[in-house]
């Protein structure tokens, strides 16, 4: 039995145009909504698969406000079996704070008899992209950690993890308990079904207040990069533009023959 915890973060949806709040401290997402990093969607899927394969539990956890219940319910709807909301003002929490808060909750639950053999996080959050919560969490708990992992399988007390490296697929064999940061690419997240959503509604979300005083993010303010004036030169329309395209390729030295 392998108990898995997966940590997720509610982030603004930023595929479209981005607006800043008036004080430039945050993204104004009122009109665009919220989502998860695609890395975390894969981590949620993996958590469910590992727990299923080993008859363990998959617990989703987030450090955030009550609003993040929306993302937690989505994870329950696709198959996580338990949920924890660590209530905190996410804007006040830097990556080191988030890691400390999660570590304390994990320790408290382990002291009370529920242990987590595998803790999954995303490789980097879609908003702040700090690339560090998983690693800091591992150090806080004194556990080994892998990042940039796209698939994980259990073999007894060892996790066999694979990720993309500079020379091919890198394979790791790491003893449990472990923290693993997941990268999109090896796993296909599933989408919630209606019965899944109904079932999720009945699972209680264990809400705890944050056990730590945050040190903060160091954020001075956000800025939108200066708009680049369009310099596009339209070479033409339709297939008639083909000679102009080929001419360009020769001019740029891309074709030399």
């Amino acid at each position: 039995m392998v108990n898995v915890m997966v940590c997720i973060k509610r982030v603004p949806e930023t595929s479209g145009q981005i607006l800043l709040s008036d004080d430039a401290q945050s993204i104004d997402a009122r009109h665009v909504g919220y989502t998860l990093s695609s890395h975390e969607e894969c981590a949620v899927e993996l958590a469910i698969q590992i727990a299923k394969a080993t008859d363990g539990e998959s617990t989703v956890l987030t450090v955030g406000s009550q609003d993040a219940v929306e993302q937690v319910r989505n994870a329950l709807a696709v198959g996580c079996s338990a949920a924890v909301l660590v209530e905190a003002d996410p804007a006040a929490y830097g990556p080191a704070d988030v890691a400390q808060a999660i570590a304390q909750v994990v320790r408290a639950r382990e002291a009370a008899g529920t242990s987590y053999d595998v803790i999954l996080v995303g490789n980097d959050a879609a908003d702040t992209g700090d690339f560090q919560v998983g690693v800091r969490l591992a150090y806080a708990l004194g556990r080994p950690v892998l990042t940039g992992i796209s698939t994980v399988e259990m073999s007894g007390d060892t996790a066999i993890a694979k990720g993309k490296g500079p020379e091919g697929t890198e394979v790791f064999e790491i003893p449990l308990p472990v923290v693993i940061a997941i990268q999109e690419g090896g796993i296909e997240p599933r989408y919630p079904s209606i019965p899944g959503r109904m079932k999720a509604k009945r699972i209680p979300i264990d809400t705890v207040s944050s056990p730590i005083e945050p040190a903060g993010t160091g954020r001075v303010r956000l800025e939108l990069p200066p708009a680049q004036p369009s310099v596009v030169e339209v070479l033409g329309e339709g297939p008639e533009a083909a000679p102009a395209v080929v001419e360009l390729l020769y001019r740029l030295g891309v074709v030399t023959k």
Binding site: I18, I27, A126, G129, G218, R219, V220, L224
Partner: peptide
């Protein structure tokens, strides 16, 4: 941050 859409002064 935001995949490059926004800059953060930190």
């Amino acid at each position: 941050v935001m995949g490059g859409a926004v800059l953060e002064l930190m």
